[in-house]
């Protein structure tokens, strides 16, 4: 079977690149770490890939604001190849810092002029926090889920967040309504049972508990939680309990974690684009 090629974008301060690489490899892709200077100097290079992944980290130290400098670098130095990539129907995923970057360069929620219509601002707790959160994806409520990244996921998944600036805010009510209408809200923070709940379930105070959104066509996904940190069951903070209760002696040593399916979805879809 052909393996789709994933470009994992790297620059000063990127730091979740290796585990994102691992996640895509586990999901069956041929993933490569690519420094942004390479893409800028060879504008045609991006064409060779079917998926662009912008991993977590602190690009350029998150100076000014999280993801801001890399967002503007993408917008001013790499915009043509990216526009072409999107127009070709290829996939983009931005995780944590990557989500902040996609929102700040206008690729998410997305409009023709790449105007910024939302932001991720400082958490209500005013500090960086690493904690696990429950996420619901409402797939049972949405008939034609366009987003290619969420197929075959259970209704509620469990992933860690680790950020100081993750509070999702839209420019105005109209943008929020548009997101709802187009089913662009992909992940929402919730409690164990899938109900909307306050801090720490919603770890940052995001509007409508929004944790991740996609573009209108469902190919570009951005989310604050880290699916690449839950590829293996042993990354789950209570894997001992899960092991006993869910699997018992049938536990496989390399039991997958909740995050892996997201990467599998992307890879499966991208296979068709080769």
């Amino acid at each position: 079977m052909p393996k789709p090629k994933v470009c994992i974008l790297r620059t000063a301060g990127t730091n979740c690149d290796m585990e994102t690489h691992f996640a895509f490899r586990e999901a069956g892709a041929d993933a490569e770490l690519v420094h942004i200077n390479n893409l800028i100097n060879q504008q045609g290079k991006l064409k060779a890939y079917q998926i662009l992944a912008i991993p977590g980290g602190f690009s350029y130290g998150d100076d000014i604001a999280a993801g801001k400098i890399l967002a503007s670098e993408l917008k001013y130095k790499l915009i043509d190849p990216i526009k072409k990539f999107v127009a070709d129907g290829k996939l983009i995923i931005g995780i944590c810092n990557g989500f902040q970057i996609l929102v700040k360069c206008g690729l998410l929620p997305g409009n023709n002029n790449l105007n910024q219509e939302a932001t991720l601002s400082i958490n209500d707790s005013a500090k960086f926090e690493d904690r696990w959160v429950y996420l619901k994806n409402q797939k049972s409520k949405i008939k034609n889920q366009k987003c290619v990244w969420v197929k075959n996921l259970p209704e509620i998944i469990y992933l860690p967040v680790a950020h100081g600036e993750g509070k999702f805010i839209t420019k105005d009510k109209a943008v929020l309504e548009r997101l709802k209408k187009n089913n662009q809200i992909i992940f929402q923070y919730c409690d164990e049972k899938g109900k909307s709940a306050a801090y720490p379930y919603n770890p940052n105070g995001s509007e409508e508990d929004i944790a991740g959104i996609s573009d209108e066509r469902g190919r570009i996904l951005g989310l604050m939680p880290h699916p690449e940190r839950h590829i293996l069951l042993t990354q789950h903070p209570r894997w001992h309990t899960i092991k006993d209760k869910k699997y018992g002696p049938s536990l496989k040593r390399w039991q997958a974690g909740d995050g892996l399916q997201i990467f599998r979805n992307g890879v499966e879809y991208a296979r068709k684009l080769i």
Partner: peptide, 23 residues
């Protein structure tokens, strides 16, 4: 203190600094 540190980046954690039924 512990929550302010990213104790899971690189994805290698097996026993984390906080553990329990509500972590």
């Amino acid at each position: 203190i512990v929550r302010q540190y990213d104790h899971e980046v690189q994805g290698g954690s097996v026993v984390k600094p906080l553990s329990g039924i509500v972590n």
